[in-house]
Simulated assay, not measured.
Amino acid sequence: MKFLKAIMKFFKVRVLLWLVLLVVVLAAAGTGVAFATGGLNALALRSLFTSSSHERDSQVVQSVTRLQEVALLSLHIEGISRHESNGEVLGMAIPASEKTTLIQYQFDAKLGIDGSQVKIEPTGPKSFRLTIPPFIGIGFDKPTFEDPLESNNALGWLATPAVETRMVNNILSDENKQKYISQNEVALKEQAKVFYSGLIANVDPEITVEFVFSG
């Protein structure tokens, strides 16, 4: 009788143990499904907000041109570029809507000639005529531009903001190159004479040179 009760108790305990194990397995499976589902949802949500970008610059050299530019002068230029604008209504300026933008800059402007255009003509046994072509702006070295400074009146936010790249392009424009040439034309002519007279004197000190400037 005792033996029978012990057997029944054993099976009763085994049944309870299997029930506990079954609940644990189901709970673990449910957690795994929830985790997987949540993980997938997180991945799906993350995919909605991710982005990718790339830049590509393709260049092809179309031609190569040999230059014989001769730099005669280098001007160190420093200045401040100023841009002013106003807000407008129907073409009429709005009072107190002025906006001023300043950019401080410095660079070296190189001026000279295209050496391939220099003409040399003999005028006697030991004399030559050199015709110098028009002076040109060769380029700008070491350009430096400070960050722009803005000054606004009370309604300055109505004014069109300055475009920094446009201001820089105006500073380095061909028009400004020509202005530097006009302002330094005498010095350019003198330097051209010194430069070519020195070259010819190294060949034959007795040669005389007449200079003619075109343009």
Rank of each mutant, 00 (worst) to 15 (best):
I138Y: 04
A71K: 09
I181L: 02
V89N: 02
Y105P: 10
L21K: 07
V209C: 03
S63Q: 13
I7F: 13
T31P: 00
F49Y: 04
I77M: 10
D204C: 05
F211Y: 15
L130Q: 05
T101I: 06
R166T: 15
F135W: 04
G38Y: 11
A93N: 14
N170C: 02
F3M: 11
K110T: 09
E150V: 15
E175V: 08
S197Q: 14
E210A: 07
L149H: 11
E88L: 08
K119N: 05
S52L: 08
I103F: 05
K119E: 12
Q191R: 15
I7W: 10
S52F: 13
W157N: 09
A71R: 10
V20I: 15
A187C: 00
A28M: 12
R66T: 12
K2H: 14
S197A: 04
P161M: 06
K177S: 07
F49S: 04
S116M: 01
A34L: 12
F35D: 13
I113T: 09
N176I: 01
G39Q: 10
N41M: 09
G91Y: 09
I113K: 04
A192E: 03
V33Y: 14
S197W: 01
H76Y: 12
G124A: 08
H83V: 03
S116F: 05
N176C: 01
S58L: 14
A96H: 10
L16G: 03
D114S: 10
L90E: 06
F3Y: 12
I94E: 00
I103W: 03
Q62G: 10
Q62N: 11
K126F: 12
S182C: 03
L21Q: 06
P143D: 07
S173I: 02
E69T: 11
S47W: 03
R14A: 15
F49R: 08
Y105N: 10
K179L: 02
Q183C: 01
V15F: 12
Y180L: 04
N170Q: 15
L17M: 14
V194M: 04
E55H: 15
K179R: 13
G215P: 06
V89G: 00
A36S: 09
E175C: 00
E164T: 15
T50K: 06
K126V: 07
G198R: 11
E88F: 05
W157S: 08
P95N: 09
N170M: 11
D174C: 01
E206C: 01
I136K: 07
V163Y: 09
N176L: 01
S182M: 08
M92L: 14
S53A: 13
N153G: 04
L48T: 12
M167D: 12
S173G: 11
I120H: 03
G39T: 09
S97D: 07
T101K: 07
P143H: 07
P122N: 10
S53F: 14
S53V: 03
I138W: 06
H54F: 12
I136V: 14
V61N: 08
P133F: 06
S85Y: 05
T101F: 07
L172H: 04
E69C: 00
S116E: 10
